[in-house]
Design a protein around this nucleic acid. Structure first.
Lengths: 293, 293
DNA sequence: CTCATTACCTGACTTTAGTCAGGTAATTTG
DNA sequence: CAAATTACCTGACTAAAGTCAGGTAATGAG
């Protein structure tokens, strides 16, 4: 992280927030307070629950309530009871509200066009490609990976999704009872550890280590949610797991994998793992790897 | 401008304003209203005139006055008479204010680091490169080119800078009286036209056309400010001038150039101009070009 | 069935941001 | 030198944004 890199990022922040921010402001107000405009946009044609709106926009409950009332009195939205829980309420746009939403949508398009329009087609392509790259990498940078309790609800959810994926991807299917599954307590220090990757708070992947003997660790349950793939999450996860293995006293790390998981195999090889003879009798394993730390 | 491009830009705007905006907010407030924080930052260690602050931050005179008073009462800044014009005043940071500024500066660096830190070195390089590209192209997109009065102060200023540049770049120097200079009135419709490129309001380049005869136009005075080079401004300028020439009835466009202006020559060639025999006796011209519209 | 919790609402605030109509002193212009 | 202009200040506003301390009805836990 050189001074030059940091300066480039700071300069980018200034330029982009200035150029885009100013445009957004002028394009997206439509004579309405920005808060209400955002709320209208966030409700969207499909409607949204109040709780979801509150958390997405980071609003105080009272503030949201008042803004919704304002949208209602302007005939733009209606708030009704949600079937199921009579406490929860659900906001929907009226006909007029949907028209406003469509207008905002069109303005957003205009805004994007106003950025592209002055550029030559080649420059347009370059801008769009660079934007995609920035977006992808900013998202990647927003992924956090931390040690968490292997028995937490989020951990269980990740594991369930992981198993579901194995079941669809393994040619032979996947039966939980047959895999040499390991209980959550094996992934708690000092026996092991469990990592969860999160993007904006929601789980986006997991990974676990446990000690096989005093000098050997095994990595298991490495999984990245489809929405977070291509961001280098698996690589970071693997490094963190190795670091923990080292802390726990391991000098060597083992892991096994199924032949269907090709991207996993190439990750392991890239990271310095070498294929070894089977070190277990996992019926779903086709390849076994080891790496000296 | 395909739907896909527009969608990518909208998605970029959302992601960047969310990720960067939220970070900036939390990093850069330091328990102070954002307006005051920005003002403090904008005054900077060197201080700044109130007029400059007003225009840079787009503030109402009364509002700025009050915010400065607030900074003063918190012991962060002081406002003194500027020597020269006793009406103008100049804001400076106190010791304490400079410390705050340094803290903001450090936080800005932290923010940038917090974005880079989770990424691998290779990804860091890609992010920084993509950010530079986005910034460059967004700046390019913000350049406007429009017809203006060739006798306006800004036009004269551009021309003066243009001539200054010729004087330093031509091996033989440049003497205004010898060049077949053309008065501003030649660049007024229906004889011709004058374009000024602007970035955030300030002139960043110019270009002119005039009719040599009923079917032939000549392009002159093409110049782009050093700060706006590499953004494709010259190309856009050239196209606009050709468009105007067409409107004025031209079927052919002529132009001449000095051998020292190599980037201009390559632009003309790229744009379809072919070298021709001298069509004038401009002592500074080494190459003459023509293009059929 | 009781009590705590949840999901939302209401009223009463405060702070921030921003505008507008004058005012004063210094300076420039004709 | 008078009149206009400039550079800033002051007071009196408004609107938007956000916070806080209670409420109420529905729901869930023991």
């Amino acid at each position: 992280m050189s001074k030059l890199q940091v300066d480039q990022i700071r300069s980018f922040n200034r330029t982009v927030t200035r150029r885009i921010g100013v445009l957004e402001d002028s394009y997206l107000r439509r004579g309405r307070p920005l808060g209400e405009a955002r709320l209208l946009f966030e409700i969207g044609p499909e409607g949204a629950g109040l709780g979801a709106l509150r958390s997405r926009l980071g609003l105080d409950s009272g503030y949201l309530s008042r803004m919704l009332r304002s949208l209602e009195t302007h005939g733009l939205a209606s708030v009704d009871k949600l079937d199921g829980d009579a406490r929860s309420r659900f906001a929907t746009l009226t006909e007029k509200g949907r028209a406003e939403h469509a207008a905002y949508d069109a303005l957003s398009d205009d805004l994007a066009n106003s950025i592209l329009e002055p550029l030559s087609p080649a420059a347009q392509d370059r801008l769009v490609a660079a934007m995609a790259e920035v977006e992808r990498l900013l998202t990647a940078a927003a992924v956090t990976i931390g040690e968490e309790d292997a028995n937490s609800a989020d951990a269980q959810q990740c594991m369930a999704l992981y198993i579901e994926e194995l079941a669809t991807r393994f040619e032979e299917g996947f039966d939980t009872s047959k895999g040499n599954s390991v209980s959550g307590s094996e992934f708690i220090r000092p026996h092991g550890s469990f990592l969860i990757a999160r993007l904006d708070g929601s789980p986006a992947g997991c990974g676990a280590v446990r000690m096989l003997d005093a000098a050997t660790a095994e990595i298991k349950r490495m999984w990245v949610a489809p929405s977070a793939r291509g961001l280098g999450v698996a690589g970071r996860m693997l490094h963190k797991l190795e670091e923990i293995a080292r802390e726990l006293g391991a000098q060597t790390v083992y892991l096994d994998t199924n032949r269907a998981l090709r991207e996993a195999q190439s990750l392991y090889k890239r990271d310095g793992y070498a294929e070894i003879k089977p070190y277990n009798d996992n019926p779903y394993a086709d390849h076994w790897f080891a790496k000296r730390l």
